[in-house]
Nucleic acid binder design. Sequence first.
DNA 1: AGCCCCATGTAACCGGTTACATGATTGG
DNA 2: CCAATCATGTAACCGGTTACATGGGGCT
Lengths: 180, 180
Amino acid sequence: MALEHALLVALSEKPGSGLELARRFERTLGFFWQASHQQIYRVLARMEADGWVEVETVAQEGRPDKRVHTPSATGRAVLREWLAAPMTLEEFRSETAVKLRGASYGDRAAVLRNLAQARADHATRLTHYEQLEREQFPDPAGLTGAALDRWLVLRGGVRLEQFWIDWTTDYLKAHGEAPR
Amino acid sequence: MALEHALLVALSEKPGSGLELARRFERTLGFFWQASHQQIYRVLARMEADGWVEVETVAQEGRPDKRVHTPSATGRAVLREWLAAPMTLEEFRSETAVKLRGASYGDRAAVLRNLAQARADHATRLTHYEQLEREQFPDPAGLTGAALDRWLVLRGGVRLEQFWIDWTTDYLKAHGEAPR
DNA sequence: AGCCCCATGTAACCGGTTACATGATTGG
DNA sequence: CCAATCATGTAACCGGTTACATGGGGCT
């Protein structure tokens, strides 16, 4: 329902080409909204056709030209309207949860092994997020506006990884595995 | 990639018709995997064609017949194989997160208002989960096997709602709103 | 010469959502 | 009689994924 809107947020922070957006998504908004470059190009083309963004072709030294997108007045209005709309209760879809629930119908030892690996992966990502937090927000107390929002969303990423670690730890312990 | 597998888990717990499955999904697995009856019918038909389930038509008093699905030997083997496969690092896709990050490009007061509502919705769901836990698992210490798994997944639901409440509380407080 | 990176895309597919359809039975 | 429930579907759409394509530049 809303790669368009995620792109408008990203372009409001900083105009950019399709590939730049794809790379930014991997690093920032991508914690909570993933998008491949193919899909970004397709949606950007639609947004351009609908007049949500303005495009400027920028020549570069020793590289292909890039098409830099900026939200238009229409795009900014669309974004404002979307931001003010009520949030729907979000659903969480987890293959892992299905596996945990179904473990007794297969090889439980394998499930526990894979879960321990998943737990380690989440721990790695948590460490990464915490490092980003130290680097980008050394003094959170003084933040306001968009910078404060960016910090709070990163905090959400940290909290989410902690959720995963806590839950998987619960599961492993309850089945007699001692994590870490 | 895996409504098939979620259905195999559900049918392993208890065989059932399409509509029964749809209702069960709303109450149990649905915390972590939502599915409409339309899609369940479609996937069940494919599973039947592929020989993953066996179907028995059961006549009922004063109601239409129902087609009860049970995992076949093939289906059980498919489920075992899927359960043993490594888990991929799960991505979380949140429209709310995008709105929080973009709040400064629209009406922040409206975003905060909607977020307070979202927080209340998650609190309601948390209360609901906790009630289910008290009803269905009054004595978790004695659980083993599939029942233990069901409790642990419900615990995951509780933890997830707590994550939402904690995060939204962070955000509201940082922007000078006092929740509750 | 071969490979990776930049940059922009197209095409086929696939899973899930939404809207609609049918027909029987029970309850107000 | 009407509405709701049980039960099973079909059809159109839509967003996202995967695979493939193109062409120039720099690096080894």
